Computed example of a mutant assay.
Amino acid sequence: MSLTSPTRRKPRTLALELVEALGDRIRDGRLAPGDKLPTEAAIMGEFQVSRTVVREAISKLQASGQVETRHGIGTFVIGLGDAPGFKIGPEQYSTLRDVIAVLELRIGVETEAAALAAQRRTPANLAAMRQALDAVAQAVDEGRDAVSADFQFHLEIARATQNSHFADMMATLGSSIIPRARLAQAEGLNEPMSDERLQYLRRVNGEHESIFDAISAGDADAARAAMRTHLANSRERRRRAQQAEGR
């Protein structure tokens, strides 16, 4: 894609066009949270713009909360920024009741996403899901909680629907939708992991594997059922914890 035309445009106009082009990639998942943006030189070459234009565009993306620059490392995507639309803020994950409410939303959205993914997934989608699942398994084996890789697996399913709205919603929600993200500090998960917790995480990943198998097989009904089972199990675990707390 080139931003040049026979009519010479001002750098500011080019910068706004570049912001829109890069923003589109963030919104449709081609550039996901955590991804590193191409180098200035690569962007200059692809879009045929000056370094000044690139730096102004990056500055605007930073101001809107879509990217952040880490000195000496590069610029990374952090989210959809200030774009209007549905959001759930951190304060809405503050209690077990909140976590259960988000899980109910996810059951409604992700069960259908899994079915669509089974029908539309590409080999690249399957490879990305497999990579995320392998990362979860490795983290568990190393005694880590694997929240990031867990979220990545669910995000890759949303992308495999080939419907950008599913991926946009997941990216907007972020990794906080994984219940363990909210509960980690409260449950002392920075301490050495107990055998009971390791077994729990392996059960969770077994549920992930069932979802993946159904999507890989192209079985929409099985994928829908496996996702519903996975999220309903998580909801019931939180309900039991809520009852134990007497809330």
Rank of each mutant, 00 (worst) to 15 (best):
A171D: 07
A244L: 14
A223G: 04
T7P: 11
T13K: 07
A41V: 11
G74E: 04
G218W: 07
M193H: 12
R25D: 02
Q48I: 09
E91Q: 14
S194W: 03
D219S: 09
D145C: 12
R159D: 06
A114V: 00
T52G: 06
Q48M: 08
S148Q: 14
M193G: 07
V77F: 09
R202V: 00
N205W: 04
H208A: 08
A184N: 15
A158M: 14
D168Q: 12
L155K: 10
A226I: 00
R235F: 04
A217C: 00
M227Y: 04
A114K: 02
I177M: 11
R144N: 05
S2Q: 01
E110T: 01
G72H: 03
R8M: 04
K10F: 12
R238C: 14
S5K: 13
T122V: 06
R97G: 04
G218S: 03
D221M: 09
G29E: 01
G218D: 06
P123G: 12
Q152G: 08
L189I: 05
H230G: 01
A149V: 06
F151R: 09
P84W: 04
L16H: 02
R182Q: 12
A223E: 05
L3E: 00
R121C: 09
T161I: 01
E112Y: 12
T39W: 10
I211H: 09
G34I: 03
R224D: 02
E209W: 14
I178P: 08
V19F: 05
S5G: 07
A226R: 04
A160C: 11
Q185R: 14
I107D: 11
G206C: 13
A222R: 12
E156S: 05
N163I: 09
N205H: 15
E196C: 09
R239T: 03
D141L: 10
A127V: 07
Q199A: 10
F153W: 12
Q199Y: 02
R202N: 12
K36M: 02
H71K: 11
I157R: 08
R130C: 09
G45M: 04
K87P: 02
L183A: 11
A124V: 11
E236Y: 04
R182L: 08
A149F: 11
